[in-house]
Design a protein around this nucleic acid. Structure first.
Lengths: 184, 184
DNA sequence: GAGCAATCTTACCAGTGACAAGATTGGAGG
DNA sequence: CCTCCAATCTTGTCACTGGTAAGATTGCTC
């Protein structure tokens, strides 16, 4: 099928769907091509190689991530909640983004989007501690807690320890770790 | 080479070394076999298939993990530090353990070792909150913070935000998140 | 010292990512 | 209109992979 019209997008979506089902490694470019009804090398023109496809996913993921964090940037605590919400609701993106061996981490689009997200995280916890040293520790703590909860949740490690939806339980964990910072 | 003598161990170590270098997906059984000087199907007898090898790594990893946590079980805060120390010093194990799509999570050895580690984590934060509900939140918070810091550190996400060795910086992050629980 | 069971090998298959060379087609410029 | 170019997709091929089947080797037991 020459001139599919929307192949780049369709392959990308198929990759996301496949990643959602079985992780970012358990699918092949050829499988995605078959699903899209094109030859096994059709994606090459759009992504170069498999790493290129994963790089595109990471770049788009960091951009979406930054967007969602930006929406709540004024509330330090809600940035953490948004972090968790993003991981759960955009699982496939998240699983690629934080697995640097999968894609080209220094791709310009990736770098730009990732840096944008990072700045929002840094801004979110600004002014919560007196010294720069403590400031940095607070940022790290918040980032670690949100990221850790999200990772554990996605890996299924919490199925025995937590009941409820991710956002509710995540809020409780964030509150236990960081609530004292919020209240001053 | 018939009757290598120690093939199971050698393949396992080679897999750990390769995982350390390039992640748990970027090596092949055949490559490990070549390194060990045996035919490409020799590992089959010991592990069944590639998933079996990764399952063995996960089982051994959780057992080592439980051992290291056990050594400091009396101090809630030090359990978190030990968690981070394990992730950094046994990176290959850690990266497999928390990637359930890679191995058979319900393998009896895996289940036993993982459950042992889980109990230590639960015990570590016992008595730090009045109600069971808060108790659970504190456990989740501590686990999330340690796990998140370890994951971010291993993925390289912190290279711009933190200087120093993982344990030192990790302590600071844990202190910022959980220090208030320690001091009562 | 015979035979068994554990361990390893050789041979093969389908599936994969990458590459090279070529086919098709929409659209721009004459 | 129509020519031709660049974007897009296809066919063909390669080395490599994981998995399976069948068979070879060898340490150990009795």
């Amino acid at each position: 099928m020459y001139h599919h019209g929307n192949l780049r997008r369709e392959i990308l979506e198929a990759a996301l769907a496949a990643t959602e089902e079985s992780g970012p490694a358990n699918w092949s470019l050829r499988e995605l091509s078959r699903r899209a009804g094109v030859s096994h090398t059709a994606p090459v023109h759009h992504f170069g190689d498999k790493t290129g496809l994963l790089t595109a996913i990471a770049a788009e993921g960091f951009a979406l991530f930054a967007d969602e964090l930006e929406a709540v940037v004024d509330d330090f605590f809600e940035v953490g909640v948004a972090y968790i919400r993003f991981a759960v609701s955009h699982r496939a993106y998240f699983e690629v983004m934080f697995r640097p061996e999968l894609y080209r981490t220094e791709d310009p689009e990736v770098v730009a989007a990732r840096e944008r997200a990072r700045q929002i995280l840094l801004a979110g916890s600004r002014g919560l501690a007196p010294t720069p040293q403590q400031q940095r520790a607070v940022t790290l703590a918040a980032w670690s807690t949100a990221h850790g909860f999200a990772s554990l949740w996605l890996s299924g490690a919490l199925t025995e320890s937590a009941d409820g939806d991710a956002e509710t339980v995540g809020r409780q964990a964030l509150e236990a770790a960081l609530g004292h910072l919020r209240r001053g």
